[in-house]
Design a protein around this nucleic acid. Sequence first.
RNA 1: GGGUCGGUGGGUGAGCGGCUAAUACCACCAGACUGUAAAUCUGGCGCCCGGAAGGGCUACGCAGGUUCGAAUCCUGCCCGGCCCA
Length: 442
Amino acid sequence: MLEPKTHTRDEVGGGTKPTAGLFRELEARGLVQDTSNPDLGRLLDEESIVVYCGFDPTSDSLQLGNLVPLITLARFQRFGHRPIVVLGGGTGMIGDPSGRSDERNLLDEETIARNVAGQRSQFAKVLDFDSTENPAIMVNNADWLTKLDLIDFLRDVGKSFSINVMMSRESVKQRIAAQSGLSFTEFSYQILQAYDFFHLYNEYGCRLQVGGSDQYGNILAGVDYIRRKTGHDHGAAALTFPLVQSSTGEKLGKTAAGALWLDPERTSPYEWYQYWLNVSDADAVRYLKSFTFLELDEISEIESEFLKQPKERLAQRTLAREMTSLIHGLEQTQKAERASAALFNSHGSASGLAIDGAPEVTAPKDEVISGFNLLNALVRTGLAKSNSEAKRLMRQGSVSVNGIKVGADTGKSSIVAADLKDDGTCIIAVGRRRRAILRFSD
RNA sequence: GGGUCGGUGGGUGAGCGGCUAAUACCACCAGACUGUAAAUCUGGCGCCCGGAAGGGCUACGCAGGUUCGAAUCCUGCCCGGCCCA
């Protein structure tokens, strides 16, 4: 069987000179949508620059959707540039209209502070804040935005913004065209983001802002503002990456359970691993390029191997391993892999295998003597959200115990002692890809 | 401030007194086929009880009201679009 290689966190190049070829690399990985500076590639080869990307504190955990921006920053860092993470503690109180069809609900200060705190540690999983050469920096724009004086702001900053230009931004146009309304508050967002860029330009010499393609207008607002204020034509630049979608045009990370979170409390390493493992063939190689730090020629090798034997799913397994070890570390990755193997490869026997990390529910042993209700088991293991759903699944013949179907026609409605392996467990499955362990203890 | 149109399930969006837990599409889940893939076909998709038939509860911005019966009518409030000021 083909095994994906284990990838350890690679060596960040030392020295003040950047490693050349970053821009070409980003392009090859499908991570370049727009840039405001046609010479950006050369600039990145010649100078070690400071680059930033903003993150909205709309939740106390980052999610799958934040991964491309975050990993892109890490690519800059690995090529010798210096990344800044801007937590939008200030702008989060305003709400970015980009990509939204409705006015946002404003978050209160307390919530934002909690979210900022929650996200903080997650950045360190991907970025290096301790590098001696080019450590990443984290700042919160609340630190400067909340200090602004309204009159000064309108005089010094607002004067540089043309309403005509602001109105022509795609995010604004869409909201107006959709007749869904746009408050002055949200309309002002682009000025604040522009001001952020300007602030970072002054404080840290930050010359590039990266973001998703929906951020292009906001980023350009900053580029323009810096040009106006400093008179330098190419003082600051914009770079956006395309919105990463599945081959069927869907946003990533959509499951019945909701979004996929980086927080292991919300999305377990096993679920995270399984998500990537189940990526479709059409997407797997593309995701390897966009999401992992594997070298491109290494990915090409994986690809050709994968194309020869797609059913081995080398691309998916590599992807799952890379993504899980990036976010949850090697140990959790191995657990997830073992749990997956125990649940899926051994024809329903978990005995003797390390299954730590798999979804598992424990119940007292005497419950099984009288017969442990299957519906109960489905809900308890999280395989079904409600009794209704569990019944539905049973009716549809989706449920199996130890690999044996227990649909409505079999008449089996509970787990009995005979279903248990020697170690007191059984595997309960819904459909092809969702499985859990039920363990009975003394 | 005045007028007018609108606020429906995760999303878009029908319904406009009983036939409606609410059409359709998307997303999502499952069955068949497979490789824990895609495509395709099929079923499902508020919650609770039930093997099922069926029953109960909650839901169409919020709060009241009319009615045997309301997502649907009325009143007030909140929110949004458009027009006027």
